[in-house]
């Protein structure tokens, strides 16, 4: 017979695997900017963190985050896709899985690994083998009609982030309408608005990670 409490109390006390959270989205939508906002916000809440970035043939984004001074550079790993970015997050995520396993080995207390995919198109999605939860970042500058195009990234992600809200008046986008249409194509699943320039909306993203992924509240 299984002893009382074995599943909850004991297992929770033992080391749990780190949660793995993917961040995908089109080129330049603000994925790295979001990571740079999430790092200090999560650190302030005591979350033990590591980051993986994917770039085509460089470690550009990883270097940018390492230099930011926001996080111990050793906690930032780079994976070069070498091909279309989606190949290493969906078709064959082995390289990223190895990078995440390696971070967990090196930093045994790590609770959360953020994984930024290389900028891709609206069809890119993450494999469930790689991430427990994934967000898709689009931006206002890409056009208010992006959600209506029902890209699999937009529709299937666990959280859709519409970034660069500050640009809406400059590019003629009706933010409220864009938000409503995003919720509609997603059957009401979460959509959050951010301005990674000012940090507006970041708290809501963090709150969602805390409840759905970190199980803190």
């Amino acid at each position: 017979m299984i002893e009382a409490g074995k599943t909850s109390a004991t297992a929770t006390a033992a080391r749990l695997p780190a949660a793995r959270v993917g961040i995908g989205g089109p080129v330049g939508s603000g994925k790295t900017a979001l990571v740079e906002r999430l790092i200090p916000a999560l650190a302030a809440r005591g979350v033990d963190l590591a980051v993986i970035t994917n770039d085509l043939v460089t470690a550009e984004d990883a270097e940018r985050i390492r230099r930011s001074g926001l996080i111990d550079p050793a906690r930032v790993s780079a994976v070069e896709a070498g091909a279309c970015p989606h190949t290493v997050i969906r078709e064959d995520p082995t390289l990223n899985i190895e990078a995440a396993d390696e971070l967990e080995r090196r930093f045994p207390g790590v609770e959360l690994i953020l994984l930024e995919s290389g900028g891709d198109n609206l069809a890119s999605t993450f494999s469930r083998d790689l991430t427990d939860f994934w967000m898709f970042v689009i931006d206002v500058g890409g056009g208010g009609d992006i959600p209506r195009k029902r890209g699999p990234g937009v529709v299937r992600c666990d959280l859709l982030v519409i970034n660069k809200t500050d640009l809406a008046p400059h590019v003629g986008v009706d933010l409220e309408l864009m938000h409503a249409q995003a919720l509609a194509v997603r059957d009401g699943r979460p959509v959050l608005l951010t301005n990674c320039r000012s940090g507006e909306g970041i708290d809501a993203v963090v709150a969602m990670l805390e409840s759905q992924v970190l199980f803190r509240a």
Binding site: M1, I2, K6, T7, S8, A11, T12, L16, F215, A217
Partner: peptide, 20 residues
């Protein structure tokens, strides 16, 4: 919130039948 980690068995496990 009940924090659960891992699968502890299956509802058809004969060893658990009486308890279930």
């Amino acid at each position: 919130m009940l924090r659960l980690h891992g699968i502890v068995g299956h509802e058809t496990d004969t060893s658990l039948r009486a308890q279930l």
